[in-house]
């Protein structure tokens, strides 16, 4: 069983690495793959605060936007390459997360109220950046140096794809590592019952803050790459729909399962994009109608996530396979 897992994992890694060769001449295919991975990274990072710690964070767009604006502004103003800029962006996101997290967790804002306040935070930043004309403002600010690898401004999607692959494996690894460490046990415990965790020696406040910081760093980092992919920065990067979608992908995929949110992102984002491509034209919003219905149905009938459905199916097939082999 363990060997089988390792083999299938290696197979998956290989598949992810060679996938672009099938789409080399297909620009749309590459955009699609990169988008899926982008959501995969965001949802996997969300799993740390949302899935493990059970805090329904709806502020992915806030950290993404901060990362994007930091990276973009550093490039525009100081000609600093995004290869460094994205890390600064991640740090800015972390700083903001600490600023927000300290009072939130200090005053025990949790559950619905945590969700609502994080959701409001995204809108606050969006409006603030529209008003802050020096950095943001209502028009797109285009990034220079198109076509230069030194400035992470590739003319093809393939390099971006691989950057996203690296980010994805990094955040999967971070997830895996946390889930086997003290922090992971503490997060899951406090996600289930804060008081019970507290009397067992869990520092609820600092554990939550650590989770928020790690999540914000990954999302901020991704935000910098996001700006480079789009080639501009705009306050609409602080997007509530994106933020709620990241959380929904995490929930639908399976909270607390390391690769659950990734599975959610791969299945749902590809479905959404394919629907959009095929139903476009006159019925431009039909894809969203279908998409949201599918989301609701999954949440209603598989509240523990679509990944558990796949796991169950896999286990059933596997045990049948073992039985058949024994029978022979």
């Amino acid at each position: 069983m363990k060997n089988l897992r390792i083999v299938s994992l290696l197979f998956l890694i290989l598949l992810v690495l060679i996938l672009p060769f099938f789409f080399r001449s297909n620009q749309y295919g590459m955009i699609l793959l990169t988008t899926i991975l982008l959501y995969g990274v965001l949802a996997t990072a969300w799993n740390i605060i949302g899935g493990m710690a059970g805090q329904l964070d709806l502020a992915a767009g806030a950290y993404l936007g901060l990362g994007a604006f930091t990276t973009g502004t550093l490039l525009l103003r100081f000609n600093l390459t995004p290869w460094i800029g994205i890390f600064v962006g991640g740090l800015v996101a972390v700083l903001f997360a600490i600023l927000v997290g300290l009072p939130l967790f200090r005053f025990k804002v949790k559950e619905v109220w945590y969700a609502l306040s994080s959701s409001a935070l995204v809108e606050v930043l969006r409006i603030a950046f529209i008003m802050w004309e020096k950095i943001g403002g209502p028009v797109e600010r285009y990034l220079p140096n198109y076509g230069s690898a030194l400035y992470m401004r590739f003319s093809s999607y393939i390099p971006y794809y691989y950057i996203m692959v690296i980010l994805l494996f990094a955040s999967l690894f971070v997830n895996y590592w946390i889930s086997r460490s003290k922090l992971g046990y503490y997060l899951i415990a406090l996600g289930d019952d804060e008081d019970a965790a507290e009397v067992l020696g869990v520092n609820v406040r600092s554990s939550k803050l650590k989770a928020l910081v790690i999540y914000a760093f990954i999302v901020g980092l991704t935000g910098g790459v996001y700006a480079c992919i789009y080639g501009f920065i705009h306050p609409n990067f602080f997007s509530s729909p994106l933020s709620t979608e990241v959380a929904i992908l995490g929930i639908v995929g399976g909270m607390g399962i390391t690769y659950g949110p990734l599975v959610g992102a791969v299945l749902l984002v590809s479905m959404r994009e394919l629907l959009r491509a095929n139903l476009g034209g006159q019925l431009e919003s039909l894809y969203l109608v279908i998409y949201s219905v599918v989301l609701i149905l999954i949440v209603l009938f598989r509240p523990r996530g679509i990944t558990t459905l796949l796991q169950d199916t896999f286990n059933k097939l596997f045990s049948r396979w073992v039985r058949n082999n024994h029978a022979e």
Binding site: R180, S181, Y185, D192, G201
Partner: peptide, 22 residues
């Protein structure tokens, strides 16, 4: 007030981390 999503050994491990390393 059990940690509903944890296994028995994981729940106990949360307590064990109070004084011990991984």
């Amino acid at each position: 007030r059990a940690f509903a999503s944890m296994s028995v050994e994981d729940a106990i491990r949360v307590g064990a981390y109070n004084r011990h390393t991984n």
